[in-house]
């Protein structure tokens, strides 16, 4: 569990590979192609890459027009600008129109640590999840980024994929080969279930190892597909434990935690939602520094697990 890979590079390489096999694929970017790695497609297929300038609203609606003419546009920017600045274009031109547009939100969560709150997307999953016809994918590692691209191509309609700027460990599912649509068991346990996605799945697995030494058994389930969410799977993984924790690099409002709570509304078990506590981010020297500050670490997960089991007070 130590091999690191950069998800955005994995994304760019996979996009080029996929585009080689499907000439309907085109890419648009708003002057961030060197960060989102759509530049790799530009180098390979310049005629299929559209630099749209720093004008995200136009870019998203242009992509809708391309999609309505049979293309499969992959639209790139930082998560914040793509889902924030262009929200209403995503809503009307893409989601309402059921346009086959793939929205690639890069530098998600706190991963653009230095740039501060303006660039840190902590609401993107919430707003994309609220849109009818939208699929929302939050891959847990670089391999899942490629899987998410493949899945997006199978879906005839809008898809939002959230990609981190930070290197991520390759993780192994307990049952390999399952669809991204299904919440995936990463490691089983008896006492508590942790639902996580993105970088937080790694943290949850590390928390599980720490807690195992204390005699606490954690089940970790990765939920890359926040929407559509398999509620039955969430209920199944949560029914034989004493409590549930959700953890995501996103606001506690509207994201994975909210989706899990909706699925477990009738469950008698306590559920604790971990994420950014309705706050904006800020600048820091590293991504890790922000994750510590905002309580999104394996230690924070351990603390919450102990509290849920009555072992210790939560601070």
């Amino acid at each position: 569990m130590t091999k690191l890979a950069c998800p955005r590079e994995a994304y760019g390489r996979h996009l080029v590979k996929t585009a080689a096999a499907d000439e309907r694929i085109v890419a648009l970017d708003a002057d961030l192609s060197g960060s989102t790695m759509s530049c790799l497609l530009r180098e390979e297929y310049p005629e299929r890459f559209f630099e749209m300038g720093i004008a995200e609203q136009n870019m998203v609606a242009v992509a809708a027009g391309l999609a309505l003419s049979g293309k499969i546009p992959f639209v790139h920017s930082f998560s914040m600008f793509l889902t924030g600045r262009a929200f209403e274009q995503v809503r009307q031109s893409v989601a309402l129109a059921k346009a086959n547009v793939k929205l690639i939100g890069s530098s998600c969560g706190f991963s653009d640590f230095g740039d501060g709150a303006t660039h840190q997307a902590l609401e993107d999953v919430a707003v994309m999840r609220a849109l009818p016809n939208m699929t929302v994918l939050v891959p847990m590692d670089a391999a899942e980024v490629a899987e998410a691209v493949d899945l997006a191509l199978e879906i005839q309609g809008p898809v939002y994929i959230r990609i981190s700027r930070s290197p991520m460990e390759y993780l192994t599912k307990a049952i390999p080969g399952s669809s991204l649509f299904e919440p995936a068991l990463m490691a089983d346990g008896r006492d508590l279930t942790v639902f996580a996605n993105g970088l937080m799945t790694t943290e949850a697995l590390q928390a599980r190892e720490i807690l195992a030494k204390e005699g606490i058994s954690l089940r970790v389930v990765n939920v890359s597909c926040v929407k559509p969410l398999s509620k039955e799977a969430i209920q199944r993984w949560a029914e034989d434990v004493q409590g549930v924790i959700t953890v995501e690099e996103h606001s506690v409002i509207g994201g994975l935690g909210s989706a899990v709570l909706e699925a477990l509304a009738l469950s008698p078990r306590p559920t604790y939602v971990m994420g950014a506590e309705d706050v904006f981010g800020q600048s820091a020297q590293s991504h890790e520094e922000l994750l510590v500050y905002y309580g999104l670490t394996k230690e924070a997960i351990c603390q919450r697990a102990r509290f849920l089991l009555g072992r210790r007070e939560a601070s």
């Binding site: 299929r48 998203v60 027009g65 391309l66 309505l68 293309k71 009307q92 031109s93």
Partner: peptide, 30 residues
């Protein structure tokens, strides 16, 4: 567009149709 034959795009919130048209124009070129 998905309700009415002959309608090409969804508009109503203003300012978006020309961008959609541009996307279609670029697709024609490709």
């Amino acid at each position: 567009r998905d309700r009415t034959p002959g309608i090409e795009a969804n508009t109503g919130s203003l300012g978006q149709g020309l961008s959609i048209g541009l996307g279609m124009a670029l697709a024609a070129r490709l």
